[in-house]
Simulated scan of single mutants.
Amino acid sequence: MNGPLLKVQNLTKHYPLGSGLFKKTIPVIRAVEDVSFTVETGETFCIVGESGCGKSTIARLLMRLVEPTGGRVLIDGTDIAGLKKDALRAWRRRMQMVFQDPYSSLNPRLTAGQIITEPVENFECLGRRRHQALAADLLRKVGMSPEMMHRLPSELSGGQRQRLGIARALSLNPSLIIADEAVSALDVSVQAQILNLLLDLQQQMGIAFVFISHDLGVVEHIGHRVAVMYLGRIVELAPCEALFAKPIHPYTEALIAAAPVPDPTRLRLEAPVEGEVPSPVYPPSGCAFHPRCPLAVERCRIEVPPLVPMADGRVVACHVRAPATEISGNPALAGDRSILLAQ
């Protein structure tokens, strides 16, 4: 089909804190607030940000593991956010997930072969011969010996378990894989193996990835486009090379400046930003980053900045670096944010 493989429009997720009596207003955790982006076939779209910014919540919303408060999630033009249980089941084959923890995400009572073939058996019956052939093929694809299909997860290393999780995700031939901190629990050498494996599989099978991480070094290596999130909102979205070469939003600058570098002679003289991330229950008015931003002006304290397109194809939400008047000359962009987010 024409158009992006995945299109997210105004995705929102609020978690109410308790229940109100007599229609009393109760506070909510604003985990994700008005997030929009697109993912093309064969693209790696990365989402980065501090802990608690809403990255993992987006992953669960895309998979419908939690229900959205508002917004749309379209796969090939079909809004899966509004599908009922039976209709959603058919779309489960198109999207799979690789979880952060390679230990708790695998059933300890199943063998590696059973873990790989279990998703397929949810849709069709596999005979013993097909079961073993499928498990052996996918184990080879992720760089493991077919003989390991008879082992339990407890008999595998952390890297082997994560490879097994990837093999399970591949078993249904999905178009889209959501990878939520898929290498954060692994040693650096094993991380490199898994990342190279994902890149090879993407080239061979044309899979699109939504790759969620707090490790900017990993994102720079694997990503095509990057969305930077702060307190539930996207503040900058840009091609990977452009983002790391010249970040625009002050928070993106601080995030990149805080990333460790493999050079002990380079010392950071001062903290990029000060203060703590505000509460998602009672976020600041205006731009959520303004209490920590060295460039904040009065407008930042009052008005939420819209995402504005820049000359190099990125979009930025900042009153100082990307004033909203820049879109006034383009009615199409001013009227439909999904257009500028797809650029």
Rank of each mutant, 00 (worst) to 15 (best):
G223W: 10
A258M: 12
F123G: 11
T252S: 15
R128T: 12
R60Y: 02
T325C: 06
A288I: 05
R94M: 09
L216A: 00
H319L: 12
R268D: 13
R301Y: 08
R268G: 09
A133Y: 07
L74K: 00
G232K: 03
A245Q: 12
A31T: 06
H14I: 06
M205V: 00
P294C: 05
C240R: 07
E155I: 09
S213C: 00
I58D: 03
V73H: 07
L83Q: 07
G232V: 11
C287F: 14
A182R: 03
A192W: 06
P309F: 14
C287E: 09
N196P: 05
V281C: 04
Q202E: 08
E33I: 07
L172F: 11
A257H: 14
M148R: 07
M144F: 05
G82N: 11
I116L: 10
D101Y: 01
L6M: 05
G313C: 14
D312R: 09
L152E: 01
P153N: 10
G52E: 13
A182H: 00
H131W: 11
L62P: 04
E43T: 12
L243V: 13
P27V: 15
A185Q: 04
L295P: 01
R301W: 00
L138K: 09
C125D: 12
G18S: 07
E33L: 06
A192S: 15
P4H: 03
S105I: 10
L17M: 14
P294E: 14
V219Q: 02
L198A: 06
V120H: 00
H290I: 10
E326F: 15
M310A: 10
R130S: 15
E50A: 13
L65W: 03
V190G: 03
L198W: 04
G143D: 12
K141W: 06
A167Q: 12
G42H: 08
L88I: 09
L126H: 09
N2V: 10
C53Y: 03
T117M: 08
V190E: 03
L197S: 11
E241G: 09
K141H: 05
E124H: 04
Q160G: 07
C240Y: 04
R163M: 07
G49H: 07
